[in-house]
Amino acid sequence: MLKDYVQPKTVDGVLASLRQGNARIIAGGTDLMLDMKAGKTEVEKLVDINCVDSLKKIEIVDGSIIIGAAVTHQEVATSKLIQEKAPVLAKACRTVGSLQIRNTGTMVGNVINAQPAADAAVALIALGAVAEIFDENGISYLPVEELYLGVGQSKIDSSKQLVTSIKFPSLQSGQGSAFVRLAQRGALALPMLNVSVVVTLSGDKVDWLRLVMAPVAPKPVRATEAEKMIQGKQVNEETIIATANAVASQANPRDSALRGSGEYRKSVLQTLVKRGLIEAFAEAQK
């Protein structure tokens, strides 16, 4: 039974409130409120982080983009900085749920909620993002990729820890990115598949590529074999098709009665990867 709801103004205040026990952080609350109603989350106190000004920033510091924990999907999606320096993330955030959901749900919350197909997480992993974590032991950092423990399970314990921000290098010229999504309708739908690509070219060759796909496993998956394979290759149709074919070995989507068979999604994944690569290469070559 919920007995208290506090809105601290500082990160220290948030941690102090958590220390008193039986508490949990709430940001947008889009998932948490439903879990509480369904009895999935039992908690006595909610610590709302929306009044902490330092958590509401989107900024660029020394070439790194920092997005605070209280920043909503819509703020990310419409940020000029993100649209310019990390378009893959702006696009991913724009596809979440509906405008109302994007106006409340935070990007960091989406990552910590650890759903296999979290759009923002898929993009952030491709961007090589790292989370900044505060707890009673001080500050630590973990790549977003490593935050996932399993379906709906994060390494972050929101009753003790606060992710203050997520940070990743901004994209430079010669880099390109893409976010491709297949869903059963244009809004209010979880993805059947989503793919994020970040690529760096040197000349007409691929310097390196990060390719993340979901939901093809309990957490977003880096197509490391395809990434390796494409390194140093010429940007052309042949490379794109070979890379798209190579992702299959690392994708094991399960059969979903609601969102398509594993067989279908595995097969059509290659199309999405192909389209993602074409878009990212084009952007990098601009």
């Binding site: 609350g29 889009t30 106006n103």
Partner: peptide, 19 residues
């Protein structure tokens, strides 16, 4: 249940009242 809170459209059914 959409209402406008601080200028933004939100679903009031999943916003905690105290927010």
């Amino acid at each position: 249940c959409t209402i406008i809170m601080n200028g933004k459209a939100v679903n009031s059914c999943i916003v905690p009242a105290l927010q």
